[in-house]
């Protein structure tokens, strides 16, 4: 396989995953904004949504103030924002088109149809009532694509590079949400038990589609340290850092077997995977949740670069 092909497939998967995560972030932000609140504008919530999406800088370069309309437009439709849903779907399709021969017909058709349908939406005609439907649609398209992939693709390097892209992106997304919101998970005396916290905690869980499963797993009300544990260390939760790294580990093992060699990325991934497997939430809080997450983000980025080097993504 060409190095460029591997690169395109990896990023194709990342963009599909990113579009889905973005839709979820917008949905959660919008829910909170709709809640009746007093004081400093509810719009402040958008600030953390933008930060979680990694889009704050870009947004404020373009807009002086926060408005729901501007934020949603920027995150959904703005082509100057490389992480907007529209940009992600366009980039995913562009990569898919460049690697048309690596995709099955089902995968290509779902990707192509997603782009064709999404690009037909006129941003100015989207009303508040329609927003949830559009966000649902984005998530269902991503699910359709992954379903097509899992059902039809050969388990060879094509599949492995796409899996790596999906789970590195997912780990990145979950860790960024934690990075932006870690303070609401810290035990601050004055805030404990306030209604605001419960809303924030629910928002975090919702943004990784985990607000219902949390109750099944823990059988109790939201506890901030439990939420942190769930998102970081729980192996069963499909968007937790641990779960992402289990998938990354398996995939890198598959690649090593497929190609018959190992690289620096294998060591890095194994290190991160073991940390998460052996991790304990009390220790993490003790040595600093924020530091832990920052360290994770940098390790995750390093892994991405090492994968690119090992498999000649850039020639």
């Amino acid at each position: 396989m060409l190095g460029r092909t591997a690169n395109d497939l990896y990023w194709l998967a990342r963009y599909v995953e990113r579009a889905e995560n973005m839709a979820r972030l917008i949905e959660v932000g919008y829910r909170i904004v709709l809640l009746p609140r007093d004081g400093e504008g509810a719009h402040e919530e958008w600030r953390s949504t933008l930060a979680s999406a990694g889009c704050a800088q870009g947004f404020f370069d373009k807009h002086e103030t926060l408005s729901t309309r501007d934020v949603i437009n920027y995150l959904l439709f703005d082509c100057s924002n490389p992480s907007s849903v529209k940009s992600c779907l366009a980039a995913a399709r562009r990569n898919g088109r460049a690697q048309r021969t690596s995709l099955t017909r089902d995968m290509w058709e779902s990707l192509n149809a997603a782009w064709i349908e999404f690009s037909a939406i006129k941003p100015e005609s989207v009303t508040a009532g329609e927003l949830p439907r559009i966000l649902d649609w984005v998530r269902s398209r991503s699910a359709l694509y992954r379903g097509a992939m899992l059902n039809t693709i050969l388990r060879n390097d094509t599949f492995f590079f796409m899996q790596l892209g999906t789970f590195l992106e997912r780990a990145d997304n979950t860790s960024r949400i934690l990075d932006v919101k870690y303070y609401v998970l810290l035990p601050h005396v004055e805030m404990v038990g306030s209604g605001i916290d419960a809303v924030q905690w629910a928002a975090i869980l919702r943004s990784v589609s985990a607000h219902r499963s949390y109750r099944w797993v823990y059988k109790e009300n939201y506890k901030p340290w439990r939420i942190a544990e769930y998102l970081i260390l729980n192996q069963a939760m499909p968007r937790s850092l641990r779960s992402c790294y289990e998938q990354i580990g398996v995939t890198l093992d598959d690649l090593a077997e497929y190609y018959g060699d190992q690289h620096a990325c294998h060591g890095t991934a194994t290190g991160t995977r073991q940390r998460l497997a052996k991790g304990n939430i009390d220790n993490i809080f003790q040595s600093g949740l924020h530091e832990f997450i920052e360290d994770f983000i940098s390790r995750n980025n390093r892994l991405g670069n090492e994968v690119a080097d090992a498999y000649h993504f850039n020639g």
Binding site: M1, L2, R4, Y311, H312, G315
Partner: peptide, 14 residues
């Protein structure tokens, strides 16, 4: 690229 006197493509394995 031309590498070692032949036309070569840059694959994931070199």
């Amino acid at each position: 690229a031309v590498i070692d006197g032949y036309l070569q493509m840059k694959t994931t394995q070199g």
